Simulated scan of single mutants.
Amino acid sequence: MLIGPVGAGKTSLLNALQHNCRKAQKTQSICFSSGMIDTPGEYTQMPRFYSSLAVTATEAKLIIMIQDASDFRAVLPPGFASMFPRPVVGVVTKIDRDGANREKAKERLLQAGVREAIFYVSAHTGEGLAEVIQFLAERGCK
């Protein structure tokens, strides 16, 4: 299950992981696709949707929390990952962008409670995708 703020690159990452060349469009509702769950960014930014994320997470083996490397806002609340009944890994997206700061993005994920692996990817260039795909395969998630 992919979670993260609006515009963080969740759907683009999902498409890249599934080798899907479609252009990402705004996710309007929770979408189940080929064994993965894509969630709207608003669900992580509006507390009234947290219960929907928690319930949906019970259908997932793993939570992938996304942080855009070019967005330095602290959008996810401290300890946010602790509400999920599954392991939470982090993925820093958009590492190919000008001004991307991997360390700042990692810091945001750690503040949000990610305690598992953190990966750095670009859905645009493909950098880092192989590591995520291998990790998911080892966990039986793909």
Rank of each mutant, 00 (worst) to 15 (best):
K104V: 15
I95G: 04
P78I: 05
Y120F: 15
E116V: 05
S70N: 14
I118N: 09
F72I: 15
A123I: 02
V89A: 09
A100G: 10
Q67P: 12
M65T: 09
V92P: 08
S82I: 08
V91A: 06
E116H: 05
A100L: 12
L129F: 03
E127Q: 13
I95D: 02
N101Q: 15
F80C: 09
R86Q: 09
G113S: 01
V92H: 08
A105S: 11
R97H: 12
G126T: 10
R115W: 03
K94P: 03
G79K: 06
S82A: 13
S70E: 15
L110M: 13
M83E: 03
E131D: 10
Q134V: 09
A105P: 11
K94V: 07
D96T: 10
A130T: 08
R108W: 12
L129M: 03
G90N: 05
I118S: 09
L110S: 07
A123L: 04
T93Q: 05
L76M: 12
V114D: 07
D98N: 12
L76N: 11
P85L: 05
Q134M: 06
G79D: 04
A117T: 14
I64M: 11
A112L: 05
R108Y: 14
Q111N: 12
V121K: 01
L109F: 01
L129I: 01
E107Y: 12
Y120Q: 06
V114F: 04
V92M: 08
P78M: 02
E131H: 04
R102W: 15
H124P: 07
S122C: 04
G113C: 01
F135W: 08
D71F: 10
L136S: 02
R86Y: 01
A81K: 04
T125Y: 09
E127V: 08
A130S: 12
D98Q: 14
S70D: 15
A74Q: 14
E107P: 04
D68N: 15
V91R: 03
Q134C: 07
F84L: 02
K106P: 04
G126S: 07
D68T: 12
V92Q: 07
F72D: 15
L62F: 01
A69H: 13
I63M: 06
S122M: 06
I95M: 08
L62R: 08
A74D: 14
E131W: 00
V91D: 01
S82V: 11
N101G: 11
F84R: 02
K61G: 09
L109Q: 02
P85E: 06
G90A: 06
I66C: 12
L110T: 14
G99P: 05
K94N: 08
Y120H: 07
V89W: 10
I133K: 09
E127N: 06
G90E: 03
E107V: 03
K94R: 08
N101S: 14
V75W: 12
Q134L: 10
V88G: 04
F80G: 07
D71S: 13
L76K: 10
M65L: 11
T93R: 02
K104M: 13
